[in-house]
């Protein structure tokens, strides 16, 4: 049985002003799986990730060609609404970035935007999201405390819960553990592995990609070099550049 892809990118090229950051990317990302994007820094993997929920719209001089289809709709089509897209495609950032509000208000941010006001409904959303992010037991007694009082790993899971509260179809994660210590990293990874979501994760850590992902895409100098099931890519890469990278010869 073949599921339809969660995301398909068709000949996507992207420019920052004159600089071409991505060259003709074609990629189909599977539904309900974890896909890792790896490559040396500056290879375009984060840029590609941010294209998926139009977070590059804020970059001055950004231009794009090609199309990205999510849920049957071209994200950059004339009818597409970036606000709607970002609600369906959640994102977790490199550095935990909770709002300077309570944990509760952090989680409720998205639902309140779309007009959910009833306390009982919000309570339910918060509990569900925090449980989904495996944080409920840690924080259920201090929901009204500032999110800044939590540890780095807990803050990052608040950010995950905050994204999950909108029940996104896809979750994008931009090096979500690079600012965390090993124990917190393990917790976040554990969460990723057991989640049933479609997740696209950028990581500079190849072990991490190998540990958690089903498929891995290797980016280099703005090009997609190779995309394969993770085990295949790490054990028998087709391209020599992939092999050089994963064996540590550059990058």
């Amino acid at each position: 049985m073949v599921k339809p892809p969660a995301i398909s990118a068709r000949s996507v090229s992207f420019y920052y002003g004159e600089f071409q950051a991505l060259r003709d990317i074609n990629l189909e990302i599977a539904k309900d799986e974890i896909t890792a994007l790896i490559g040396p820094s500056g290879c375009g993997k984060s840029t590609f990730l941010k294209l998926l929920n139009r977070m590059n719209d804020f970059v001055p001089g950004a231009r794009l060609s090609g199309e990205i289809i999510i849920g049957g709709v071209n994200v950059y089509g004339p009818q597409a609404d970036p606000v709607e897209i970002r609600r369906k495609v959640g994102m977790v950032f490199q550095k935990p970035n909770p709002f300077p509000k309570s944990i509760y208000d952090n989680i409720c941010y998205g639902p309140r935007l779309v007009g959910v006001k009833k306390k009982s409904a919000l309570d339910e959303v918060v509990e569900k999201a925090l449980k989904a992010a495996a944080l409920w037991d840690d924080v259920k007694d201090k929901l009204n405390k500032s999110a800044f009082e939590l540890s780095g790993g807990q803050q990052q899971r608040v950010c995950i819960a905050r994204a999950l509260a909108l029940e996104p179809d896809i979750l994008l994660m931009d090096e979500p553990t690079s600012a965390l210590d090993p124990i917190a990293t393990a917790k976040v990874e554990e969460w990723i592995k057991q989640s049933k979501l479609s997740i696209v994760i950028v990581t500079h850590n190849m072990q991490q990609a190998a540990r958690i992902s089903h498929g891995t895409a290797f980016f280099y100098m703005g090009e997609l070099i190779e995309f394969a099931p993770t085990l295949t890519l790490f054990t028998s890469p087709k391209e020599s550049r992939t092999e050089n990278y994963i064996t540590g010869r550059f990058g």
Partner: peptide
């Protein structure tokens, strides 16, 4: 106001 919390807001579908 830090750019990262603004990004967080946009990424949650805020206008």
């Amino acid at each position: 106001v830090p750019r990262d919390i603004q990004d967080a807001s946009y990424a949650l579908g805020a206008t």
